[in-house]
Amino acid sequence: MTRTLMVALRTSIVLMVLCGLLYPLVVTGIAQAVMPGKANGSLIYNDKHEVIGSELIGQTFTGPNYFHGRVSSIDYNGASSGSPNYAPSNEAMIKRTADAVETWKKENPDVPVSGLPVDLITNSASGLDPDITPEAARAQISRISKATGLSTHQLEDLVHKHTKTRELGIFGEPVVNVLQLNLDLQKEAAGK
């Protein structure tokens, strides 16, 4: 028994070093040497070389002149991640969703509720979802056109340009990255 215990202890320490230190550090070395941009979190920089976000992490957008993303109970705080974990039968969730529909009506009087895609009024799983569906982007065009003065035609082109199809043609769903779309939108609105 004591012999087995000693073997167990020594083997554990060897495997700790191999699997818990050498392996992740070797992978870190390869990643930092070959693809540092992705390895450090796909950060986006502006012209002044300041970090303004990550391609993969959503941000809060509330102004009428921006495309809005999904509901986030943690307000896109990327220091953690989270969702309210509402059950489908939870009245609080149904009330929150019904309120979101009312807000939508006020902010987007031109678009009927039947044109409001469900992803815009539901909380994402991570609270950091960077994407919305292309339909959800198009549904916001009329509001943004009024707020920015850009034509709906220009905005449609912009959404089309930022629509990513399924990966390799079949995996996942078509998406629009809200931060990248808004970055381009900001440029066009400024250069108008």
């Binding site: 930092q32 950060l43 303004i52 976000g53 992490i57 941000q59 921006y66 896109y76 990327g78 970055l183």
Partner: peptide, 29 residues
């Protein structure tokens, strides 16, 4: 990692968002 998963020993990144808020972004190996 090639598909976008981070692998870094750098601490949480702090960024200034488009709407001017401060956002912290946790990452790691």
């Amino acid at each position: 990692i090639a598909l976008g998963v981070p692998q870094t020993l750098e601490p949480t990144a702090v960024v200034n968002t488009l709407e001017g808020a401060k956002q912290e972004i946790a990452r790691g190996p």
